[in-house]
């Protein structure tokens, strides 16, 4: 474990022993070490403080730090488990763990629910979905009339909001994704599968 010396721990606040992280996640110790290499590169891209701030996170996703984006902001907030405005290494590993092909389906469903529940009320509200649809349209430069957006929302809430109270609760979300499993596709990253390119980041311990 020469790679994870006490010096590394001082330089990387929130750094946790890879053996401990591996025991709590679907990752092997080698995979956690590989993720540490990736983490180091992202966390030093703007400010070399051993933590990932929002700007660095956006830069890693879009290769453009200036691009404000609703989705990236939301994913960052969910990765920021301790609500400190930054992502430390243990947050990074635990959050990416949800995207592991072997992670629990329940965890993926839970994370995806939080992703859409923008204001964390415990419900996915129509207004939140509309906000995301509009953001998506802006991003893709696709134009849809407001009536069309409302039609899409009507159709969506007719299918998902079983008790028709205008918002989707966790139980309704579970049912909805069970009928529409393709919605969970974004919750699995093939890169995290054992033996794939994640291992390009493996740090060579001498």
């Amino acid at each position: 474990m020469g790679c994870f010396s006490s010096k590394a721990r001082r330089q990387f606040p929130g750094h946790e022993d890879p053996v401990s992280l591996a025991s709590q996640t679907a990752f092997t110790v080698s995979e956690v070490e590989a993720l540490f290499e990736l983490y180091k590169s992202i966390s030093s891209s703007v400010i070399d403080d051993g933590l990932i701030n929002k700007e660095e996170f956006q830069l890693a996703i879009f290769k453009n730090r200036k691009k404000e984006n609703l989705f990236a902001n939301r994913i960052f907030d969910l990765f920021d488990v301790k609500r400190k405005g930054v992502i430390d290494f243990s947050d990074f590993v635990r959050s990416l763990n949800v995207f592991h092909p072997n992670a629990q389906l329940e965890d993926k469903i839970d994370f995806s629910f939080k992703l859409y529940d923008l204001d964390s009320t415990g419900f996915i509200e129509r207004q939140e979905v509309k906000q995301m649809l509009i953001a998506l349209l802006c991003e893709s430069e696709m134009k849809l009339a407001d009536e069309t957006i409302e039609l899409i929302l009507d159709k969506t809430f007719l299918e998902a909001d079983v008790n028709q109270d205008g918002k989707i609760d966790k139980y309704e979300w579970n049912n909805f994704v069970s009928k529409n499993p393709s919605l969970l596709k974004i919750m699995t990253l093939p890169y995290l599968r054992y033996g794939t390119s994640l291992f390009y980041f493996i740090y060579r311990c001498d």
């Binding site: 996703i61 879009f62 859409y116 979905v129 039609l151 159709k155 969506t156 596709k185 974004i186």
Partner: peptide, 25 residues
């Protein structure tokens, strides 16, 4: 066609939801 899809299908196709970029240099 967007109208034939539900809102979540549309949103989940957004490039911004794709975390794969994290692994690409």
């Amino acid at each position: 066609k967007p109208v034939s899809m539900n809102a979540f299908e549309l949103i989940s196709r957004s490039k911004s939801f794709n975390l794969e970029n994290l692994f690409e240099k």
